[in-house]
Design a binder for these strands. Structure first.
Lengths: 237, 237
DNA sequence: ACAAAAGTGTTCGCCTTACACCCATGA
DNA sequence: TCATGGGTGTAAGGCGAACACTTTTGT
């Protein structure tokens, strides 16, 4: 029965998918219904799956993003391995879910990935009723150790945003500087001075004006900017 | 045959153990003898092992450090997962090594750890003839993808040394500021101005004088300093 | 006495921070 | 015309970089 499994039985990946819209940082969670003490419960979990026997973990993550979130070609990065012995059985409810789904393995080590999607151009209708975006500050307890994985992902994101051009992965291709500032503020949970922020951002050669304005807003039309990846690559030398 | 294995067949950890002495950054490698084309070859690899079925990866790393390097209570950190499909078979010689050692699994995902040891108080005689310290700039090709793992570990170390008090893990408890400066210089492959370096270091409350000098050197006796972990912890608030 | 590394201050430029008012647009 | 967010400049302080000579110790 155990001969030639098509997945690695004890290894999985889980994806913390971050999105940004309307001034809020969000995370995509999948809904799981479970019966516990004869009552139906709704549990939330991170998208994830076992690693195929002949699959790189990055490819597993790419597959999960596509199959479970309908997201393709988005930023993605592994950030930490979680291997606590009790990570799947911290609560009795979790153990029931494993049995219900016919999973035999009690020991699964998982690689945490985080990814960033442009929610503005994301079709959330594909998620149907099985997944939903949650405000990052409004996530309750999750199944297994997924809340811990989420917390660690956020810590890593807060750190990485200073080293890599991640903010642009969360915004439309054309964005205003106020939107960009807001992304930083929401992720880092701070406030910045508008003038100082703009001066610093515009000192980077890779943030360029689209020479367009965003009309239709009930105030002065803001200028649109874009991230120039080629220019950015040059700064890495 | 495959029932109840005591290790996870497709998961291992590998340790990049860094040490510092005499102005050089070193790495501990294990020697493997292998017959190839009817000639004996010496191959070098990173210490590593499979993860036990009921073992956290951090405990696997701790075990490997003790069993394969005789090192206990040293700094250790997971930094990246390596899962390329061909990582164990990049060269024919590597494949022979796997067969020789009777390993059945061709697919092994490995978690890379790096660790830091105080070479000054390390008993290298325990390594016998199976392992040796190599200057980081003097490491040739390694078995499997171990050279890549080493390179990534060094990149991570260079980054982490700005965020965490890692330099002290490589030095004796009592050290001179010149030694400390040299650790930074060797790891980051740069030179610093002595006065600027000292001013910056001493502005940290957690670098404290031992009120002792190091005599026996053929020049002015330098003052000894130590890292105060409690003071450091306070700075984290 | 000599060699070798320890130890020590000042200046300059840049980057960060703090701070307040007028402007363009849609309603 | 009003409400809303867009857009702009300047001054002060802190931080990092550059730079050279005297001191102490062992040989």
């Amino acid at each position: 029965m155990r001969e030639k499994p098509n997945v690695i039985p004890n290894l999985s990946i889980d994806c913390v998918i971050f999105g940004y819209s309307e001034g809020e940082l969000k995370v995509l969670l999948r809904k799981e219904e479970i019966e516990y003490l004869n009552k139906p419960h709704i549990e939330w979990k991170l998208p994830g799956n076992h690693v195929g026997m002949h699959e790189r973990i990055e490819d597993t993550a790419t597959r999960v993003l596509k199959e479970q979130a309908g997201a393709e070609k988005i930023f993605m990065k592994q950030f930490k391995v979680f291997s606590d012995l009790d990570r799947l059985q911290r609560r009795e409810m979790d153990y029931l879910w494993i049995k219900k789904n016919g999973l035999k393995e009690e020991r699964v080590v998982t690689v945490g990935f985080y990814s960033l999607v442009k929610l503005s151009s994301f079709d959330s209708s594909k998620l149907l009723n099985v997944a939903a975006w949650h405000n990052i500050n409004d996530v309750g307890d999750l199944i297994f150790d997924h809340k811990e994985i989420l917390n660690e992902a956020l810590i890593k994101l807060k750190d990485d945003i200073f080293s890599y051009p991640l903010a642009f992965e969360l915004l439309p291709k054309k964005f205003t500087l106020t939107q960009l500032q807001n992304v930083y503020e929401v992720i880092l949970n701070t406030k910045y001075d508008k003038r100082n922020f703009r001066r610093k951002i515009l000192s980077h050669t890779y943030i360029v004006s689209c020479n367009e304005k965003q009309y239709g807003v009930a105030h002065k039309a803001p200028e649109l900017f874009k991230f120039d990846a080629k220019m950015y690559a040059r700064t890495l030398n």
